[in-house]
């Protein structure tokens, strides 16, 4: 058992179980702090995208992975977050520290409204219901005067007190803090009674009810929580991109998020993070590969650009075929393997 012996329940329930875990996390934190110094602006921008995706994926995993409620409307909640902060900052001149939580709560509120039909709908029917919600949000953003439809709208830069977040590097530190906080909160929720109730509803809803868990309360809470995460992610996207159009929050974004949590591992916090990194990273990886191939095979590179989406899809399908538990499953197996290495039991 790796020589871990605990003498109290407190120790057994701690988030960071061993000294090694703390050491590794410390190294990771140090790497995050140091790495922007060695990376190009383009590379940092990839990390920024990933960090935002992590926040959104954590939220969606709480809903789909933990509670088992399928949603195709995650992109719409990101849009609500993005447009809430854009409008609140642009029209009402509210400071960022107000608009960011406002985005989260706005999305959470609408998420809870969407959650109400989830009390009746299950599985594919629920997916269809949330899909319809996505279309409604899309329609409103395209046709509402304030959001300027297809034209898009500008978003004020982030300003906290006298500090204004401008460069990629500043944004990186800024967003990394949020991603870390989001991860910590998700992990805490998952190991508390709320996470257990979510999983109970996913695994056996009738038994969950017989164990005194109110399905209505916790399903709606899951929707609210997931949308809150999406709203925060959306607000960060808006401030990061500085210009938002409805088209970037459509169905394909929702599906990309679903791909993240499925590839990463449903119902695990680590899976959301790995999945977000992978799905955000793949397109950049393909671009990188194309650049390399351009030197020696100019004809091939043209093809790769055409097939970019196809290659992306292929990677997703292959990953699902060979590792249905996602990246978190691979990690789990590797951990067990190394625990007893070099012995095979």
């Amino acid at each position: 058992m790796g020589g871990k012996f605990k003498t109290s329940y407190k120790g057994d329930m701690a988030l960071f179980q061993t000294l090694w875990v703390k050491v590794w996390l410390g190294i990771l934190a140090a790497a995050i702090v140091v790495c922007p110094q060695f990376l190009s602006t383009y590379q940092i921008s990839i990390l920024n995208e990933m960090a935002i995706a992590i926040i959104g994926a954590l939220g969606l995993n709480l809903l789909i992975g933990y509670t088992g409620q399928i949603s195709l409307g995650h992109g719409a909640f990101l849009a609500i977050g993005a447009y809430t902060t854009a409008l609140a900052a642009g029209e009402l001149n509210l400071p960022f520290i107000v608009t960011l939580p406002l985005s989260g709560f706005m999305a959470a509120l609408l998420g809870m409204v969407v959650g109400v039909p989830a009390l009746r709908l299950k599985g594919l029917y629920l997916a269809l219901g949330t899909l319809a919600f996505g279309f409604i949000v899309d329609y409103i953003l395209f046709h509402w005067d304030l959001t300027q439809g297809d034209m898009g709208m500008a978003v004020n830069p982030v300003q906290i007190g006298s500090w204004s977040v401008q460069t990629e590097k500043e944004f990186f530190y800024f967003i990394a803090c949020f991603a870390a906080l989001a991860t910590l909160c998700a992990k805490n929720i998952a190991r508390s009674k709320i996470g257990r109730n979510f999983i109970a509803i996913r695994d056996r809803d009738i038994a969950a009810e017989a164990m005194g868990i109110s399905l209505a309360k916790y399903k709606i809470m899951a929707f609210g929580l997931s949308s809150f995460y999406a709203g925060i992610a959306g607000a960060l996207v808006a401030h990061y991109q500085k210009w938002i159009v409805p088209g970037s929050f459509d169905l394909s974004l929702s599906i990309a998020y679903i791909a993240m949590i499925i590839l990463g591992g449903l119902g695990t916090v680590l899976g959301s993070i790995l999945g977000a990194i992978l799905i955000t990273g793949i397109p950049h990886g393909i671009i990188y590969a194309t650049d390399v191939a351009k030197e020696s095979y100019p004809a091939l590179s043209g093809l790769i650009v055409d097939f970019k989406l196809g290659i992306f899809g292929l990677i997703v399908v292959l990953a699902l075929l060979f590792e249905p538990q996602g990246l978190a499953g691979i990690y789990r197996r590797a951990k067990v393997y190394w625990k007893t290495w070099p012995f095979k039991y």
């Binding site: 009674k193 257990r196 999983i199 695994d203 056996r204 009738i206 038994a207 969950a208 164990m211 005194g212």
Partner: peptide, 23 residues
């Protein structure tokens, strides 16, 4: 058996006490 398959024994047992918590 209607246990919550995705959880450990410990979590299954703890899951039934959710309503006794007040946080």
């Amino acid at each position: 058996i209607e246990l919550f398959k995705g959880m450990t024994v410990l979590d299954n047992l703890m899951s039934a006490r959710g309503f006794l918590h007040h946080y």
